[in-house]
Design a protein around this nucleic acid. Structure first.
Lengths: 156, 156
DNA sequence: ACTTAAAACTTTAGGCTTGAAATAAATATC
DNA sequence: GATATTTATTTCAAGCCTAAAGTTTTAAGT
């Protein structure tokens, strides 16, 4: 009931805004640290890592459009990242049987090997950066996040 | 104690990773929506908005380096954004008395007027996007976030 | 005063990002 | 079968972003 009083509503809006700014700051901090370490220790970037992670989950390959859906970035963006991974021998494109428009992006064996290292380092970094959260807090955090964005159909 | 058992530790690490990925997804969703609405409804961008917000808080102006500290982005980045805001008549640079290296970036009156509209819309959007969080949840979220990143000295 | 170092900015090169336009191939409609 | 629409992808223009290098000015050391 108190939430429906004009002043409380206004203050709630401000509090939500403050929370959002704080959320941005914290995720920015963690994300920036991950970017920095990927660059410094492994000479790569977060977008490359994200693409490789998606491809690692799909050993048979992913269509370019599936990849961009999966990562929620634009089509043209994925084209460029896969181009660069391909130049470095970490990914490749293979034709799709029966549809000459489409292509599957895949990791090369070299790409899989590189990703295995990246993934281990990445998990350790995240564990480090979120290290003060214990199991109950993590569960609490999941609950809160679920309220912000309604759960979506996960792509396997 | 159970947290120190090898298996529990490993699982905790995975849970932290899952939480991080979920956090990224949610903040990305909200941030993407804000970007989209800024572009669609106000023909501007989030970085421009962030710079204008910082300048609006400091009516006397901010040095370029203070601005980049404040926003936690690189110097060169701020240069470009302020350039564009200046071209559009929303910001301007003024010389600093006694230090010919430095410049203050400020909003123009037009910039202040535009920002007032943007800020109102922005707060409403955030309130909408985080609308399912009530006051106790917000407090809970703040507590959790404080554990991830130790609070820092806020710049006034 | 002279040299050196530090500070404030800008510029540059390279990569990420988007939305929109362009290409090409598959499918639907007539 | 010819035409139109849809689908998969790439290309393009413009902006964002960083690290590194370059300018100009200030401050420190001698």
């Amino acid at each position: 009931m108190s939430q429906t009083r004009p002043h409380a509503v206004e203050s709630l809006s401000k509090d939500r805004l403050r929370l959002w700014l704080r959320l941005l700051k914290v995720t920015g901090h963690v994300e920036g640290e991950l970017r920095r370490r990927l660059r410094a220790d492994h000479a790569t970037t977060l977008p490359r890592f994200d693409v490789m992670a998606a491809l690692a989950r799909h050993p048979k390959g992913l269509r370019m459009s599936d990849l961009s859906d999966f990562l929620r970035v634009s089509n043209g963006n994925v084209t460029g990242i896969v181009d660069r991974l391909t130049e470095e021998g970490l990914a490749l494109r293979v034709a799709v049987e029966g549809d000459r428009r489409a292509q599957l992006a895949r990791l090369t064996p070299a790409g899989e090997a590189v990703f295995a290292e990246l993934a281990a380092a990445h998990e350790a970094w995240v564990n480090d950066l979120l290290g003060t959260l214990d199991a109950p807090m993590i569960e609490q955090a999941f609950d809160l996040l679920t309220r912000i964005e309604p759960r979506e159909t996960e792509r396997p």
